[in-house]
Amino acid sequence: MRVDLFDFELPQALIALRPVAPRDSARMLLARGSAPLADRIVRDLPDMLEPGDVLVFNDTRVIPAQLEGERGEARIGATLHKRIDLRRWQAFIRNAKRLREGDLVEFGANVTAIAEARHKDGSFTLAFEGDEPVEVLLERAGRMPLPPYIAGKRPTDERDQSDYQTMFAQKDGAVAAPTAALHFTPELISALDARGIKRETLTLHVGAGTFLPVKAKDTDDHAMHSEWGQIDGETAARLNAARAAGGRLIAVGTTSLRLLESAADDSGLVQPFSADTDIFITPGYRFRVVDGLMTNFHLPKSTLMMLVSALMGMERMKEVYAHAIANEYRFYSYGDSSLLLP
């Protein structure tokens, strides 16, 4: 399928550089089947769902995975995106032409790493020196890895330390936030509980590959990045029981959706899962367990734009995005939300 079919023009003024406050006051565009689109706000979510439905959240926590360092006189930037083991991470490198295998990179604050191996995509394996956990080193020398469309407009600051974490963040490992869940507040959760909406959590450590553009002209030629995810047996059993009782599984974010579909078998049951997934969902995909999706508005020609088009249909998503742009919804990680119910 041609990648340019998922392209659209987005005014730069609609790219959100800060989230709204409170978080649940963000706008939400409801697309339900073929019904007319409805302009709502996130705190209306309980009224858009039914008792017994299950919201499935990602409990990954963003780590300060961006580092600035030096290799001799060369400035080197590193964005960690996938853990290999306790001391090694795969990282995208800025100024990679100045880095060779075996080089030592000094990131300041007594944090150093060896550029151990270069990968085919230009990234490197960085092996951190010392005995301290890498997470401790990152807290000392790293900064919050804001998406390039935000970081290119303004510097990271103290507000981002909390703004770019969801209220469900518990397990360290992500280098990008599962942004659909940024809209939730304790007050909204209380309203969902009162409505009889259930919730479950899984873990998918979001990698920086989520921001990489699709460079291929055809989706068949795109190599999807992989990310590590986990759903335990008890959670899988509860999800299956809820769906068997007539409840819908509503993924909060594309990360939750991708992991749910990765863990589902052909009979439509969620199985326990603990592995990497590189699932690539494009139009024509048959969804096994996900019945709906809450998600922000995505980049043109991105794998996430392809995913939502697979869920709702390409023509419906063109309608959704045309409406969002015409009505000045805020786009991307700190932007507004949508609820997609096929």
Rank of each mutant, 00 (worst) to 15 (best):
L239R: 03
R118N: 05
G173Q: 00
Q165K: 15
I114V: 14
I189H: 09
T210Y: 06
P147F: 04
T179L: 11
K171G: 00
A151E: 09
G233F: 05
R238D: 02
T219H: 08
R258N: 06
D160G: 06
G173Y: 00
L192S: 09
I150E: 12
R248Y: 08
T166L: 14
V136P: 00
P133I: 02
K171S: 01
P148A: 09
F124A: 02
E132Q: 12
V136T: 14
Q161M: 12
T125I: 14
L192P: 03
D157K: 14
R159N: 15
P155A: 12
M167K: 10
E139S: 10
D131C: 05
R195M: 02
F128G: 06
E116P: 01
S226V: 00
S226W: 04
A241R: 12
L182C: 06
D218K: 09
A194K: 15
T219E: 04
S226T: 05
A174P: 04
G209F: 03
N240P: 03
P147T: 03
L192D: 02
R258Y: 05
P145H: 11
T201L: 00
D221I: 01
K198L: 14
A237Q: 15
G142A: 11
M167D: 03
I114R: 15
L249T: 04
A177G: 00
P178R: 14
F128I: 13
E187I: 04
E187M: 03
V134H: 11
K153R: 15
A216E: 11
H183F: 07
R154Q: 03
T166C: 13
K217A: 07
T166W: 10
V136R: 15
Q165F: 13
P213F: 08
E132T: 07
A141I: 07
P178C: 08
R238V: 01
T219G: 01
R154L: 02
T166Y: 13
D221H: 13
S256L: 13
D131Q: 14
E200W: 05
E158K: 14
A223S: 08
M224G: 03
D220M: 07
S226A: 13
A127P: 01
I231V: 10
E139I: 04
G233H: 11
S123Y: 10
F124N: 02
G130H: 07
V252I: 09
I114M: 07
A174F: 08
I197N: 07
R258F: 05
F211E: 02
T254M: 04
R243A: 11
L138A: 08
L146N: 11
G253A: 09
I197Y: 09
E129Y: 00
A141H: 12
D193E: 14
T235P: 01
I197Q: 08
E135W: 07
G122R: 07
L192V: 07
